[in-house]
């Protein structure tokens, strides 16, 4: 019971880190980026290569994964994404599915089709007892990092000047521009930051999520579900949605393994059918 709960929380935290960028870009730029998972995959592969090739410590890999994914995101935003902000959702979906396919083939070519694992540092494999079970330091790290980041993001959005500009830009792009807020630059920064967070999640979550070229496709539904349940444009919405989803998914796998991913897909459909407007009030 506690195991399921703790695993679910750790897993949900990683989902949050992966999806929060998507939720913000969907709310802010009205952009449906199905390729968001590719940035998480990039973070994962950066970690694998850094450790295996260059013997870099896992702890250093985390910020590195963030940085590489963020830079990659920035470049793509400037080169490609920015051209489709004004397009309809069908165009955006087509475009980003194209990117997903390209990412998958590239990963396959560069890294091979097999699952990649990393050797976690000795330290992280230590377990500490909690209630009736024990928790590895790795999971504790995951939960800790994600919780701190979620809090930081929330404060960033609510308390800082940047956050204010961001929210102004969400509410009305034209007015924001009129107030002298550099909307395109904010968009680029937010997009890159969201990609960086996904990259970090990919690195942090290798152990939980697995890593192979089909990664971006496999997790699309989870991203979308987080956004569907949590709404767009906030930090707290996706946070609670991710936790819920993480715990539910682990619980289902644990107690009802024969259902497989079916239940998650079904939940997504039901949520969307019941609340198609409320959930996308901003995007609509």
């Amino acid at each position: 019971m506690t195991t399921v709960l703790l695993d679910g929380i750790a897993y949900g935290m990683i989902l949050f880190l992966m999806a929060v960028g998507l939720s913000v870009t969907m709310g802010l730029m009205n952009l449906v980026n199905l390729a968001h998972g590719a940035f998480a995959m990039l973070g994962g592969y950066v970690t694998v290569v850094s450790i295996e090739r260059f013997g870099i410590s896992y702890f250093l890999c985390l910020p590195l994964a963030f940085l590489v994914a963020a830079i990659f995101g920035l470049v793509l935003e400037r080169l490609l994404y920015r051209r489709i902000y004004e397009r309809d959702h069908l165009d955006q979906v087509t475009f980003t599915i194209g990117l997903v396919f390209m990412a998958i083939a590239s990963a396959d070519w560069l890294m091979g089709a097999q699952q990649r694992l990393v050797e976690l540092p000795e330290l992280l494999r230590m377990r500490i007892p909690i209630l009736d079970t024990s928790l590895s330091l790795y999971r504790l790290l995951v939960i800790g990092v994600c919780a701190v980041l979620a809090l930081a993001l929330q404060l960033l959005l609510v308390r800082t000047r940047l956050g204010m500009q961001l929210r102004a830009a969400v509410d009305d792009r034209r007015v924001a521009r009129g107030l002298g807020i550099p909307v395109p630059r904010i968009f680029a920064a937010v997009f890159a930051f969201g990609c960086g967070l996904a990259g970090l999640a990919g690195a942090l979550g290798i152990e939980v999520l697995g890593l192979d070229p089909s990664f971006p496709l496999r997790w699309i539904v989870y991203f979308l579900l987080v956004v569907a349940v949590g709404g767009t444009g906030t930090v707290s919405g996706p946070f609670f949605a991710s936790l819920l989803l993480g715990i539910a998914d682990v619980a289902i796998r644990y107690w009802l393994p024969e259902l497989g991913a079916f239940a998650i897909y079904a939940v997504m459909v039901v949520v969307l059918v019941l609340r198609p407007h409320g959930l996308f009030a901003r995007a609509g």
Binding site: H89, I220, F262
Partner: peptide, 28 residues
């Protein structure tokens, strides 16, 4: 009937979800 209420984005996601559900069901 599941597609009537939503707009583009939710229709996309509902159809995606339905497709995945069926795939998974056939798999199981």
């Amino acid at each position: 009937f599941l597609l009537l209420r939503g707009r583009d984005l939710s229709r996309l996601m509902v159809t995606l979800g339905l497709g995945m559900m069926l795939h998974e069901a056939a798999n199981k």
